[in-house]
Design a protein around this nucleic acid. Structure first.
Lengths: 197, 197
DNA sequence: AACATTAAAGCAATAAAGTTGCGTTAAGGA
DNA sequence: TCCTTAACGCAACTTTATTGCTTTAATGTT
């Protein structure tokens, strides 16, 4: 295996050139993403902007999605903040609203679209699963706090709860439908009743 | 209105040749979709199978998505059956399960992915909105029946209810995550409590 | 039924992205 | 400093989409 794999026997070359190429490509990717958006993005375009030959990009990352994923995940370390307002209602509302703001940015939207583009190569699939799980793990603490307060029905599945909150918002975004605050409130209220003790 | 465009002044030619070409293309599209899946589909491939020149397809439909949409919507007249079991719980469960079966077919998955591929040309966007609305309108009768029985909180938004049911399933499908029946039941139960009077 | 008009289809050439084979450069260990 | 070979660059090739122009035939008129 070339790129990934915690492989043995293969001595990586992390030094000067590779690092510079990587840097240039990822930087150009983010810049192009910002200017052109996901749909108009191509490997050739990134090659042009970065000065790195398209073949090199193709060989190293394989697909455009892989480049994007790596470029974009670097930024996502500044993850979605998980609010702590004291009530589940407050937490869910705040979280939903910040998610919507996030989805309105090119990067947020791109991550969503890449995650929603299954089918692709299985190598990417593994990574995708990890990312999805990490995101749910991050958000579930809101629900767990509420469970500790005794606000929820016993046996409530935290991941399910987060999924029910997040799915309608993500789907509307994917389908290009508007998401207004009234909708967010309705989702949260209905969900709260569904989870409540 | 023939195919599209309630255009005036332009005399469409719906007769022999055009109709045959259209038929050949749409048929080849469905066949290719079944054999190759959405991701490997291309205009050239459809051209090869249909015997219609790729340029003709490109000129007439513009994008691959448009061809797919037209081909696939022809079949969707056999829409998702809306169950009537006597209880909202039974209806939602049955509907969710048949949706999952539908999403497991190439056609069902393709429609979902096309709908989830916003951004594209605004012409397509209008059509997309119509399709989405039509689908929700279809399913909302389940909720309205429950409302008539007095099972729901007054003021319950039927479309919201359907959306909350359908979104988690669609999203899991899009992201390539497994959907087991336990998950379906959990979604339905939580939603029922959220909607109940 | 022959004719004129002009959508709609076909054909050829071009453009643009992705991919493969092979030579070149330089990272990292001896 | 030298050697091995991972990683990059270059050129040629493949495939798909797109554009200009020609040909075919659907439809309305005489």
């Amino acid at each position: 295996m070339t790129t990934e794999e915690s492989g043995e026997g293969v001595r990586r070359r992390t030094g000067g050139r590779s690092a510079k190429v990587r840097e240039a490509v990822l930087h150009a990717t983010l810049q192009a993403l910002d200017e052109l958006g996901y749909s108009r993005l191509t490997i050739s375009e990134i090659a042009r902007r970065s000065g790195v030959h398209a073949t090199s990009i193709q060989r190293r990352w394989g697909t455009l999605e892989n480049v994007l994923l790596e470029a974009v995940l670097g930024l996502t370390r500044q993850k979605l903040p998980v609010p702590n307002t004291g009530s589940l209602r407050g937490d869910l509302l705040a979280f939903a609203r910040s998610l919507i703001r996030y989805l309105a940015t090119p990067i947020g939207e791109t991550i969503l679209r890449i995650l929603a583009a299954a089918e692709a190569d299985p190598a990417l699939a593994v990574r995708r699963t990890q990312i999805i799980k990490a995101r749910y793990d991050l958000a579930r603490v809101m629900v767990e706090r509420a469970a500790d307060r005794g606000d929820l029905r016993p046996g409530t599945d935290p991941r399910l709860a987060v999924e029910l909150l997040v799915a309608p918002l993500n789907l509307r975004k994917l389908m290009g439908e508007p998401i207004d605050d009234k909708f967010v409130k309705q989702v949260v209220e209905t969900l709260l009743r569904g989870l409540a003790n």
